[in-house]
Write a protein that binds this DNA or RNA. Structure first.
Length: 480
RNA sequence: CGGGGCGUAGCGCAGUUGGUAGCGCGCGUGGUUUGGGACCAUGAGGCCGUGGGUUCAAGUCCCGCCGCCCCGACCA
């Protein structure tokens, strides 16, 4: 929009080139930078702080649901990685290998973990002997490496940060319950803290995790109309238990294999945050995870001393309750700072100038709506709390509306192609359940089944592709 | 792995028929400013990605190599 562009420089408008907008925003907001290593980015302090906030909020949820953190090695011996056939096949093309220690060639190559199922399972087989040892509920915060052919900051990089939960259970029901429980933890986290609406559902056979029995997902919709998988939770069944020999003696005296799950979210969520909320001025961060929730900008005027003094006092009084920063730098003008912090997505700006000092007030400006208001310094703290809550709420509501507006229903394949081509977004359609139709649709339209949603999945017509009997109504989209 | 693009100051770029490197921003210093990206003065900053070739002379022409980015296929 024209008036949105008025203040911003050096960020390509979204509708001109969305990819470029995304990159510009990341670099200009100093979230990340390209490194000297191909496909690897540096998380700069501002970007890393968002990840830390996410970690904190998620970790709390993991602990509340009974999980404990641990840490497993970065390296996985080749023989371990190869034990589960489907798993190796899925990951082999993108594994980075360590072949030498110093100048000596290793007897066995070591994979730099692309995911940790195998190394963790090898330990679980040692630790689990009795039904009394179950469930095992472990999470790991780690980096993983996948040698990707094409990369993109936060969304797909050769090395990325994530958490991976790995649990082992006594029964199939327990494992399924855990899988769904963690999916719900993700949904709640992403919607509540990141203000990103998602659709919960199950992945098709084609789209499921290599080695899993069933894969569940939460799918988000970005502003360019492409879907992004925001989190996954897998019921691994007994696939890994059998190849890694994780057995326990049950109450009935029988030796049984455990039922396992794994689940993860990654720094890709930062990308989701950018592309769900951002606009032509740059980032727009939800208050719950914003590194700076409110920025105080003094406007010095004639009597700069009293303005600075008051600004410092305000900052001091707000620091305990909010992530507040005061920008006292003298070499930038207030106008420059306004733009800078808007670009960085700071939810709330607090301006204080000579007029405000005199009237015991401040000027507050919301990043989400641009609304300006004059507030007394006396009840500033309370007011900020209310506003941050309201901004969080409003950002979720706006994103929700966007998803609704960009979700369509296709009754015929013509309608389907047209929707994917012109409107993008989520397209709901009936599906016969065959892999052939799924792949043919992908071939023709580049759209994939994002998930079989938990809600509203009853077919109400024939398969959108083959015209045969539909088994489910599913959600299609082009995706990242 | 296919298609495209780019390597010249920290960043973004210009560099004509080959003649020894320039602009904007940023950065340093001094001053004036400051309610939506201020201004003046004055400075610093270069193995022109890399190796070879042609030439009296190469940022520029030729050949090779390396790197990165973007768009696809594959994947979180």
């Amino acid at each position: 929009m024209a008036d949105e562009n008025q203040f911003v420089k050096e960020i390509t408008p979204m509708d001109e080139d969305f990819s470029q907008w995304y990159i510009d925003t990341i670099l200009k907001a100093e979230m990340a930078d390209y490194s000297t290593v191909r496909g690897c980015i540096v998380f700069r302090p501002y970007g890393y702080a968002i990840w830390e906030n996410m970690q904190h909020l998620l970790d709390k949820r993991f602990k509340e649901t009974g999980h404990k953190n641990a840490y497993f090695p970065l390296f996985i011996p080749e023989s371990l990685l190869q034990k589960e056939a489907e798993h190796v096949e899925g990951f082999a093309p993108e594994v980075a290998w360590v072949t030498h220690g110093g100048s000596d060639e290793l007897a066995e190559r070591l994979a730099v973990r692309p995911t940790s199922e195998t190394i963790i399972c090898s330990m679980y087989s040692k630790w689990i002997k009795s039904w009394r040892d179950l469930p095992v509920l472990i999470n790991q915060w780690a980096n993983v490496v996948r040698w990707e052919k094409s990369t993109r900051p936060f969304l797909r990089t050769s090395e990325f940060l994530w958490q991976e939960g790995h649990t082992a259970h006594r029964t199939e029901e327990d494992a399924e319950e855990e899988t769904l429980k963690m999916l719900e933890v993700y949904r709640d986290f992403v919607e509540t803290e990141l203000a990103i609406p998602v659709i919960k559902g199950r992945k098709t056979e084609n789209e499921k995790f290599a080695g899993a029995l069933r894969t569940y997902t939460i799918e988000a919709l970005m502003k360019d109309g492409k879907a992004l998988q925001a989190g996954t939770s897998h019921n691994l069944g007994q696939h890994f238990a059998r190849v890694f020999d994780i057995q326990f003696l049950d109450t009935d005296g029988q030796l049984k294999y455990v039922w396992q799950t794994s689940w993860g979210v990654s720094t890709r969520l930062i990308g989701a945050l950018i592309m769900t909320h951002g606009d032509n001025r740059g980032l727009k961060l939800p208050p719950r995870v914003a590194p700076i929730q409110a920025i105080i900008i003094p406007i010095p005027g004639q009597d700069s001393e009293s303005v600075y003094a008051r600004a410092k006092k305000l900052a001091g009084s707000l620091k305990d309750r909010y992530r507040v920063e005061l920008d006292m730098s003298d070499e930038k003008t207030p106008g420059w700072k306004f733009n800078e912090y808007e670009m960085k997505g700071v939810p709330l700006r607090i301006e204080i100038g000579p007029r405000d000092v005199k009237n015991n007030q401040v000027v507050l400006v919301r990043r989400d709506t641009g609304e300006k208001m004059i507030v007394s310094q006396d009840d500033l703290s309370t007011k900020i709390g209310e506003l941050l809550e309201d901004i969080q709420r409003n950002m979720f509501a706006q994103a929700k509306t966007f998803v609704e507006k960009n979700t369509s229903v296709a009754k015929s394949f013509d309608e389907f192609q047209n929707a994917i081509e012109s409107k993008r977004g989520f397209v709901k359609a009936n599906w016969c359940g065959s892999s052939e139709c799924e792949l043919a649709i992908k071939e023709k339209t580049m759209a994939t089944i994002r998930c079989i949603p938990f809600e509203d999945n009853e077919p109400d017509g024939e398969c959108v592709h083959c015209g045969g009997k539909a088994s489910k109504k599913v959600i299609f989209a082009r995706s990242y």
